[in-house]
Design a protein around this nucleic acid. Structure first.
Length: 514
RNA sequence: GCGGGCGUAGCUUAGUGGUAAAGCGUUGGCUUCCCAAGCCAAUGAUGAGGGUUCGAUUCCCUUCGCCCGCUCCA
């Protein structure tokens, strides 16, 4: 290792931590790099045997809390939410209506001088009305007025605000760029032609590829819900307010995948669109903000690592009347936080768009009040794969005092394996009893049976994959039908009856998050 | 996408212009009454492609991937 690399390792001990988490994930079969034997592929990851279990556990828990057993609403009545599983590929018009094609295809410009990149629609250009001198570009943002004053002082001469015409860079022909001074440049003409960045993956439908059959892999699961809103309304006897939930893959051609599975090009979402009367939207927004925070705490993320952050005016998308992010303190964002879930008040934007583009009436008719309206939507949209990453980071607990040096402190209900059945030795009838217990327990829980090697090695292995309980069969078991429970976190042991094993694990799964 | 750093077994490291070394892991066998113990054996790597060379893991180029900063993230 070079000196420079050594230095950077020392400088960021937290990065090292992330490295260890990634290494453990691979070593024990949680997450592998996709297509690894071919050199990998940037932005894609495969879930191994244990990663799949972990992800499924989080997915199922969300579904249970959202669809099968949703919380009681603010007025004391149960909330009504139904499930959906829409196709990944829809009519391309869906993505035109949603704004993903065209509207959000943010054109970017680079500055050749400073190597900085900007969104073209975020650059405000001031062009002198008299045609004398250069145009001045300023980036939109919190410090817009400040930056503008600074750049004017430097480049505007005696001209004032009134002497300039104000336009977005995206509305200006490239032929004029030669006369524009970039936001951080020292001279005009350093901005490149805007390049369109469409984050949607394109594909072609049918065996013969042509431009006529372009389609898109969904960039979010939400649109599948909006386009089925009327179907659900007509077929499932729900009434406003109600929600439609969906879990599934989504795809975004991220400019720069980073940080393990945090930002990848193929990922999984858990989204719920809650349709309500516009006058109740505020109430439901507050309700879901609360509920969603509880959810993440319930599965074991500690309060100190969670943050509720409101979007500022600049990052708020134009149709949203408010968005909160639930953020988690990942090792790679520490001391900052990274988004786990967004809770957005989307108004009636999506339904309006689809109503307009499809020509299908999407109004809701309230039979009791005879009112017609487009419901407003509150959207809690969580990243399933980001949730998995947060669980792994939270659970990862270095402990130099134990042989494995580390254990994963999963809540039992999230742990990929709930228990391991370990005969103390591979003789004296231990394996026979262990196998019988294993066959009995696996009907209800994911459990491991491990007979080979010494007991210490086997405990250590289970620590590394976060199995909360090890059940050990020994000579006493033969005599009095008791087994040893070895607890993952404390390494302490207790003796329970062989026949109580099922009930013991059940209780563990129901326990509150620590 | 830009700039910087880095690619040797599953992991951690060693080493060399001339047969690539070790510990741990993993697998099998023996042993073992509670935390990676002991013994025996097996397993397995220079990210990929090209160039220079009699010969490249080592030198050069390209590419892929990972990490860091910037940028981006509907």
């Amino acid at each position: 290792m070079s000196q420079a690399a050594e230095k950077s390792d020392q400088a960021t001990a937290l990065e090292k931590n992330m490295k260890e988490i990634v290494a453990l994930c691979k070593r024990r079969g949680f997450i592998y790099q996709a297509s690894e034997i071919y050199g990998g592929i940037n932005g894609f990851w495969d879930y191994g045997p244990l990663g799949t279990e972990l992800k499924n556990n989080l997915r199922d828990w969300w579904w249970r809390k959202m669809v099968l057993c949703p919380p009681i609403g603010p007025d004391g009545t149960p909330v009504d939410i139904v499930g959906l599983d829409s196709a990944i590929i829809q009519n391309p018009k869906v993505w035109v209506a949603s704004g993903h094609v065209g509207g959000f295809a943010d054109p970017m410009v680079d500055c050749k001088e400073t190597k900085l990149r900007y969104r073209a629609d975020h650059l405000i250009v001031f062009t002198p009305k008299d045609g004398q001198g250069s145009s001045i570009a300023v980036q939109e943002g919190d410090d817009f007025e400040e930056s503008k004053a600074r750049r004017f002082k430097k480049f505007a001469g005696k001209k004032t605000d009134a002497d300039f015409e104000k336009r977005a860079l995206s509305d200006i022909a490239f032929s004029e760029f030669a006369n524009i001074i970039g936001p951080d440049a020292s001279k005009p003409g350093t901005l490149t032609e805007p390049k369109a960045f469409n984050l949607l993956f394109e594909t072609k439908i049918g065996a013969v590829a042509s431009d006529d059959n372009v389609a898109y892999l969904r960039g979010e699961t939400a649109q599948g819900i909006f386009v089925n809103y009327k179907n659900v309304l007509d077929s499932s006897r729900v009434k406003v307010p109600f929600g439609i939930a969906q879990i599934g893959k989504a795809f975004r051609n991220e400019v720069n995948p980073r940080n393990f599975i945090f930002r990848s090009r193929e990922f999984e979402q858990m989204e719920m669109e809650f349709f309500c009367h516009p006058k109740d939207a505020k109430m439901w927004f507050d309700f879901w903000k609360e509920e969603r925070q509880k959810f993440w705490q319930e599965i074991g993320l500690t309060k100190g690592n969670l943050l509720m952050r409101e979007h500022g005016h600049n990052e708020l998308v134009f149709y949203s009347k408010g968005t909160f992010d639930i953020e988690y303190k990942f090792p790679f964002t520490d001391p900052g936080f990274g988004e786990l879930e967004g809770i957005a008040y989307r108004t009636d934007y999506d339904l309006t768009q689809h109503q307009t583009h499809s020509g299908t009436k999407l109004e809701y008719i309230d039979q009791t009040t005879n009112e017609r309206f487009l419901p407003h939507v509150i959207e809690p949209a969580a990243g399933l794969t980001r949730g998995v990453l947060a669980l792994l980071c939270e659970a990862f607990t270095p402990d130099p005092s134990r042989p494995s040096g580390v254990y994963l402190n999963f809540h039992p209900r999230l742990a990929p394996k709930k228990a391991a059945i370990l005969p103390l030795t591979a003789k004296d009838g231990h394996p026979e009893i262990a196998t019988k217990l294993y066959l009995e327990l696996r009907e209800e829980f994911p459990v491991d049976l491990d007979i080979k090697q010494n007991i210490g090695k086997r405990y250590a292995r289970q620590d590394e994959i976060g199995t909360p309980y090890c059940l050990t069969i020994d000579n006493d078991t033969l005599k009095d039908e008791t087994i040893t429970v070895r607890h993952r976190n404390s390494m302490k042991q207790e003796r329970i009856g062989l026949s109580n094993a099922k009930e013991f694990i059940r209780k563990g799964l129901e326990s509150a998050a620590q």
